[in-house]
């Protein structure tokens, strides 16, 4: 029905080739074509951050990105953060600080937080709050998420 395109990229350290519809989002490609469902759909409009991934080291809303634009890029999703010891500490901090309730926002939060810590290793609470401003959470009231990121931030030093 629609136009297809072959693309290649690195996903969580592994080279990938896939065929995607030209109109497909990176989010749909990850979830429906590649089959990695850790990245979540929350709004599809760049407003909630549930779909956050890292593209060439920058954090992006994958729902706003075309799959074809992933061609030649380096993508890291929540599944890929498993290989990163710093992210390990972050995930543990989320668990330890009670930053997870329903957990639906959590993968996006963790990916965003990992990027934040990579760019602002000394972030204080205010910086962290601003850093996760684009990630909505309906359950926790954010406080424990901020605490978790802050602890990983200092603990990582």
């Amino acid at each position: 029905m629609s136009l297809k395109h072959d693309i290649g990229f690195t996903l969580n350290g592994v080279k990938k080739r896939v065929t995607v519809d030209v109109g497909m989002t990176a989010l749909d490609m990850l979830r429906d074509v590649v089959g990695l469902t850790g990245t979540k759909y929350g709004c599809g409009e760049g407003e909630c951050g549930a779909c956050t991934i890292q593209v060439d080291g920058l954090s992006m809303n994958s729902c706003l990105m075309f799959a074809v634009d992933c061609d030649g890029r380096d993508l890291v999703t929540i599944e890929g953060l498993a290989a990163d010891p710093r992210a390990d500490a972050l995930r543990e901090a989320f668990v330890e600080h009670g930053a997870v309730q329903c957990g639906f926002c959590t993968p996006g939060m963790v990916v965003q937080a990992a990027h934040l810590l990579a760019t602002h290793p000394d972030a204080d609470a205010e910086t962290i709050k601003r850093g996760i401003e684009g990630n909505l959470c309906r359950c926790t009231g954010y406080k424990k998420i901020v605490d978790a990121i802050e602890s990983a931030c200092c603990g990582g030093k």
């Binding site: 990245t39 599944e79 995930r91 668990v95 330890e96 957990g103 959590t106």
Partner: peptide, 11 residues
């Protein structure tokens, strides 16, 4: 700690 938190935090 919540029992289901590690799974959720790992996506």
């Amino acid at each position: 700690q919540k029992k289901d938190a590690p799974e959720k935090a790992a996506g």
